[in-house]
């Protein structure tokens, strides 16, 4: 007696192959869904916003009249914010990464820091807003300023930068460190002259991506009280400010649909800025990945 009924196998094969083919199509469809959404989203925003996107849009402050509304204050606010976030988060983040990768002993405290960082990455951004409101705005009396906002956002993206920098530092080959130590270099000389230069592309790529995350964030800045109607540019770190996402939020919340078009114009500017930042990150990655 045959254990395998060949005829049955053959007849089932047809259905199985059909099933495979159909489901391949289904899986492909689910994958394409994301692409379709992206296309619709970009198309809608472009068609809605392009009409308001002129030189005036960059020259004007916020206004009660849609045709006079501009993004000047928000645009420069975002730049100011970036000027605070970039150095603060990079210095602390890279410092943390070097400490963890090069100096920390494998003990409980180090494990604790590491777990803490990965948990911090999962805390909702609005909770960072509550932290910023209490600690920077109220306790340290920075007020609703660029500085308070920048520090809050720096803490928010710190975990992303630490993880990216750790990865970059870790990927520097052991042989390069050995070569340096064998020349009589001290630990810090080795880190400064060999490890960091080799890790810089990875750190920059991760840093820029983290920064672009910060530029698109809205909630924490709403919490610390970035203003929604600003008709001036920040003058120093303690000035009040607004940023592009908040300005967009403000326009989106207006009932008049004209303001929705203005919001779309703002979104175009925001997305363009993110696109530029991401392209720079990709360029850096490609340029240096060839060399190592």
């Amino acid at each position: 007696m045959q254990l395998v009924d060949q005829a049955k196998v053959k007849s089932r094969m047809q259905t199985r192959l059909k099933q495979n083919k159909v489901l391949k199509g289904v899986f492909f469809g689910t994958t394409i869904f994301a692409l379709v959404v992206l296309v619709i989203l970009l198309y809608r925003i472009l068609t809605q916003g392009i009409g308001y996107l002129d030189l005036q849009f960059f020259q004007n402050f916020a206004s009660r009249f849609p045709e006079k509304a501009g993004i000047k204050a928000a645009f420069f606010g975002s730049l100011w914010l970036m000027a605070v976030i970039a150095p603060v988060s990079l210095i602390i983040g890279v410092g943390t990464a070097i400490y963890l990768e090069e100096y920390a002993k494998k003990n409980r405290f180090t494990t604790f820091i590491q777990i803490n960082i990965s948990n911090l990455a999962g805390v909702p951004s609005i909770v960072f807003g509550l932290l910023g409101l209490t600690v920077f705005v109220r306790m340290l009396e920075m007020g609703r300023s660029v500085l308070a906002g920048g520090l809050t956002m720096s803490l928010l993206i710190l975990p992303i930068i630490v993880v990216a920098a750790q990865e970059a530092v870790r990927s520097v080959p052991k042989e390069l460190r050995e070569a340096s130590y064998a020349m009589g270099a001290t630990k810090w000389q080795t880190i400064k002259k060999v490890v960091l230069p080799a890790a810089i592309p990875g750190i920059l790529t991760g840093g820029i991506l983290a920064l672009s995350r910060a530029i698109g964030e809205t909630a924490p800045l709403l919490m610390i009280g970035a203003l929604t109607f600003v008709a001036y540019l920040p003058e120093n770190l303690l000035s009040g400010f607004t940023v592009m996402p908040i300005q967009i939020f403000n326009w989106t919340s207006r009932p008049q649909t004209e303001f929705h078009d203005v919001a779309a114009a703002g979104i175009i500017v925001l997305l363009a800025m993110l696109l530029i930042m991401n392209s720079i990150a990709v360029l850096i990655r490609n340029k240096f990945s060839k060399r190592l």
Binding site: E175, A179, S180, A182, M183, G184, A198, R291
Partner: peptide
């Protein structure tokens, strides 16, 4: 001084590789 199993120059210029030691 030490020379290793696998060549391990730094990802820098030839010049910078040689002056690494004197500089530090």
């Amino acid at each position: 001084g030490m020379v290793f199993q696998k060549p391990n120059p730094f990802p820098k210029s030839i010049y910078e590789n040689v002056v690494y030691g004197p500089k530090i």
